[in-house]
């Protein structure tokens, strides 16, 4: 019988330290068995359980895009048992991954729409996946304009800095990078919190869907801004986080009301969240 708890073995192919404080690293993973790689078919917004033998499993959003073939990547914040151990692993080490898990951003609904991406802190991972996916030459024509607001505490805490700079130069994506504050006199981008930068730069909700990912406080203050701009609750898309174990709706811990964030989510619209208790 197929075992949904059994991870695929993968090899750590490459590790990049993303932030100046070294608390975030991106792990590029390569499947050991080609058939596992072929089975791992995902859409941006989904996550996987990274399995570190001897320590445990952690749910992490998939940071690579399905358009990037031959590997999957994850950006991991160092917080507790598993993530700290993973940070000390080396290229060539073997771990496991289980997935893809959960739903994804609503790609069918986003087709033909203007897409607004709003991210804060290290929750930018699946948004990176989404941007890379949308600006891929095979996909770009499926979406209208793409606007991105991405903020971090300071320039040293921004993820994927080389890519951000490359996207800044493109004319088929509108970037609004911001930091809470900086002492860098040459900082060319915005200074200010994500909600206020959103209010200033995203001037229209016309035919648009917004995807919002970030710390709870950012989400809380961004929602009224989006509503004021005219986004309906159906068109505000959130990705949520709860403590997880199984990732497949069985262990019972990640529920918000009658929804399991691991299986029914992690992506929910603001409209869906309105009927659920605010217990997250």
């Amino acid at each position: 019988m197929e075992n949904p708890y059994l991870p695929y073995p993968v090899c750590i192919d490459n590790i990049v330290t993303e932030t100046d404080d070294r608390s975030l690293k991106t792990f590029r993973l390569v499947f050991i068995n080609p058939e596992d790689r072929d089975n791992f078919v995902y859409a941006p917004g989904q996550f996987a359980e990274l399995s570190v033998p001897g320590k445990g499993e952690i749910p992490i959003g998939i940071a690579s895009s399905p358009t990037e073939e031959g590997f999957v990547s994850f950006t991991v914040n160092r917080v507790g048992l598993v993530s700290t151990f993973l940070h000390n692993m080396k290229e060539g080490d073997i771990i496991g991954i289980r997935g893809p898990l959960g739903n994804s951003y609503p790609w069918d609904r986003m087709e033909g729409k203007n897409v607004v991406i709003i991210g804060g802190g290290f929750a930018f991972t699946t948004l990176r996946s989404s941007i890379v996916f949308m600006i891929d030459p095979k996909n770009r024509s499926r979406f209208n304009n793409i606007r991105v607001v991405y903020g971090a505490r300071n320039p040293g805490m921004l993820l994927y800095r080389d890519e951000l700079m490359a996207w800044e130069k493109r004319d088929d994506i509108e970037m609004h990078i911001t930091v809470d504050g900086t002492d860098d006199p040459d900082w060319k981008y915005n200074v200010g919190f994500v909600p206020s930068v959103t209010e200033e730069k995203i001037t229209s909700a016309d035919n648009a869907i917004a995807i919002v990912c970030g710390p709870p406080i950012m989400i809380k203050f961004t929602q009224p801004v989006l509503e004021k701009l005219g986004f309906s609750p159906e068109n505000i898309i959130l990705s949520l986080e709860m403590r997880m174990k199984c990732g497949i709706g069985m262990c019972g811990r990640c529920n918000i009301g009658d929804k399991y964030v691991c299986k029914d989510g992690p992506v929910f619209s603001q409209a869906e969240m309105k009927r659920l208790p605010p217990e997250y």
């Binding site: 033998p53 001897g54 320590k55 445990g56 174990k245 199984c246």
Partner: peptide
């Protein structure tokens, strides 16, 4: 009641 936890033991 069916909820469970998963742990690694070495």
């Amino acid at each position: 009641c069916w909820c469970f936890d998963v742990q690694d033991e070495v």
